[in-house]
Design a protein around this nucleic acid. Structure first.
Lengths: 163, 163
DNA sequence: GTTGAAACACTGTTCGT
DNA sequence: ACGAACAGTGTTTCAAC
């Protein structure tokens, strides 16, 4: 059941990520399969959890939330954000990642205005040392999950440390 | 045409972000409107660019790309990543943001394995000073674009600096 | 995995309020 | 301008090969 994806699966994933409303008919034509066959593959991708759902893509800026920032948080002892708050308290926080390295987490936030960001950072700052980075512009985003190139990419060896 | 979104629009956006395959019939029922009325609103949201499309959500880990990292890049003069490379050369890079502050850009990357990441960072490192943060786990992600709370959030004043 | 058929559901339009 | 019904079309899903 955890068998890897073949190239037709990747083709299906690419098409569905580009247009999640494709019918099995059209999708089947694009991947050169019949509708029932493609329906069965999609069903398997959904049940195995590779496809988690379908959603509309919304332009946050056009919707009135033009500001994005990344916030690195180094949690203070006993006031870790993850253990002391909920997602509902911080609707501006769109992502929370635990990190290796000197900050324990990386937050992504989205706000309507600079005062809004200022207030948010003040509320976040109570939970530890903060390092915020305002996004001036987003050059590239929303790339589809693609099949990784299976070519082995050799890393330059450090001759002085190899034996 | 750039008129702001009312609460029904936000309700529609919430439903469509949760399930992009909702028919106008079901959607209309959920927002207490008729199908033609809701179809017209969705059409406007699409044409005004608030809704940019519909797509399948794919679990990158389940698809064989379990590693994510953030990379802050401080471009070296004359070898800025954005001006000297293309998206095709770096399929692992899923986002590129220009930043304020000491690093000129924040990259988000997604790879299949640690050697894969190592090779990628070596290739990226040629374009400037790098600061990478490996994501250990993602606690929260994919939050829908929501209506911002319009309550003004007053920021604590700094009494010593106000007049 | 493919083809064909039948039932179903959806969309877009038209009309009435 | 909104809501309701109708007709046409496209889709899904089953069967058999």
């Amino acid at each position: 059941m955890d068998r890897s994806l073949d190239s037709i699966d990747w083709h299906i994933l690419a098409e569905l990520q580009r247009d999640g409303r494709l019918s099995y008919n059209r999708l089947a034509r694009r991947v050169n399969l019949s509708a029932p066959a493609v329906a069965e593959r999609v069903r398997r991708l959904e049940e195995s959890g590779v496809i988690t759902g379908y959603g509309a893509r919304v332009d946050a800026t056009k919707a009135g939330l033009p500001l994005t920032a990344f916030v690195q948080l180094r949690c203070a002892l006993g006031s870790c954000l993850l253990k002391n708050t909920t997602a509902e308290e911080f609707p501006e926080v769109t992502e929370v990642h635990k990190l290796s390295g000197d900050s324990c987490s990386m937050l992504r936030v989205r706000v309507a205005s600079m005062p809004h960001l200022e207030g948010l950072l003040e509320r976040l700052g109570r939970h530890g040392e903060m390092n915020s980075h305002i996004v001036l512009s987003t050059q590239y985003e929303g790339r589809a999950v693609e099949r990784p190139a299976d070519e082995t990419r050799p890393v330059t060896g450090s001759s002085g440390w190899s034996r």
